[in-house]
Design a protein around this nucleic acid. Structure first.
Lengths: 208, 208
DNA sequence: ACTTGTGAAGCATTTCACAGCC
DNA sequence: GGCTGTGAAATGCTTCACAAGT
């Protein structure tokens, strides 16, 4: 899953957190900031912020700190958020619908190119401005659109099949919401967001 | 956030993944398994599985492996999933609704004790069998119910306030879906599930 | 005086490798 | 022969601490 072995994967994820912090600072019209302030916003150590940034270049000036707007732009560029990313949604149930309507996606330049499902009950229906398409047309669809990112919101039992279909359609990265570990070829990145797993971990620490 | 310093937090989260794997094996009527097989299901190293389990006891027998049903029960007990956990949902938007209707919660013995919102437009409405309550009644509600786990599904701008309200109501663990790092006292566990952060990390690895 | 960028130290986690048991 | 459980090695990540810059 890790591609650039020099940059810890955790550092990349934190970069997104720093970006959020910078956006907040920018709306508060803060022009200049420090690693300590970013760290406070992101809930990490200040040295961690500097180290993470150092993987990608030098963005600050000793004694002065960082220019908020500049650093925000730099981080956005590093994360490739300076251009739009198309995503394909697999599964139009409650979670898929929630994501479709989630403004956070568009705010970060992620645009849903297509919504797919396998159930005849929903195929063809309109959902948040998207016609739900038949998953059997996924490969054909993506020959034209060349979407790189797929999001799996199907029930557990169908998640691996959904993954295989995305891979066959040429997808390069998958965000999986189903509570199963997926098997995918090594050239396909898979990230797993598992609500139940998180809750179960919380429950562990709640011994009475 | 880590409470038992001897057990890595990542190990606890993986335990939940092993539990999923064991449940799948059990439905396939597999009686006995090995660390290698569990590892394959969970997408980790076999030594990792054995090491993780060793933090909590000895569950297998050399040369034979693990009894699936037994190990599943043991893991469920370790994660305190042998009893029901009440949760409070803050925010009845699309994401909150999706969670309310998500069968995975009930399957893992998490039961929604109450749904709260601050918008007069939704307070009092019925949602998946739950009446949406006024967040101003949260403390009073929890004096009676003593729920330990809160889930934040409110918009970013209100997330910190929601967190503060949960803390004031005596919540001990929070699962946060808003894309902000929350500040909470050290006795309150916070876990962060951030869809946009995950997508942004994926985008980083998708350089063309 | 204050803050960055970074080598080096410190700490944590993962993986190896094998003794011991089935 | 096969598999677990676990010290020890290897790896990876985070934090420290300070030289250098403003």
């Amino acid at each position: 899953m890790t591609r650039n072995p020099d940059v810890p994967e955790a550092a990349v994820t934190r970069l997104a957190a720093y970006l959020e912090a910078l956006e907040r600072l920018e709306t508060q019209e803060v022009a200049t900031t420090s690693s300590a302030e970013i760290a406070r916003h992101a809930g990490v150590n200040a040295a961690q912020v500097r180290k993470d940034l150092s993987y990608f270049g030098e963005f600050g000036r000793p004694g002065l700190g960082y220019d908020v707007a500049n650093l925000r732009r730099s981080l956005a560029r590093i994360l490739h958020l300076d251009r739009e990313h198309l995503v394909i949604l697999l599964g139009s149930g409650r979670l898929g619908t929630a994501l479709l309507g989630y403004p956070g996606l568009a705010q970060r330049a992620f645009r849903v190119a297509g919504v797919f499902d396998s159930s005849p009950r929903v195929i063809g229906q309109e959902l948040c401005g998207h016609r739900v398409l038949d998953v059997r047309n996924l490969q054909e669809f993506n020959r034209e659109h060349e979407v790189k990112i797929g999001i799996i919101c199907v029930p557990t039992a169908q998640a691996q099949a959904a993954c295989d279909q995305l891979v066959a359609a040429g997808i390069r990265a998958i965000l999986n919401f189903a509570p199963v570990s997926l098997r995918a070829p090594p050239h396909v990145l898979v990230r797993h967001v598992d609500v139940t797993r998180e809750l179960q971990a919380l429950a562990y620490y709640l011994a009475d």
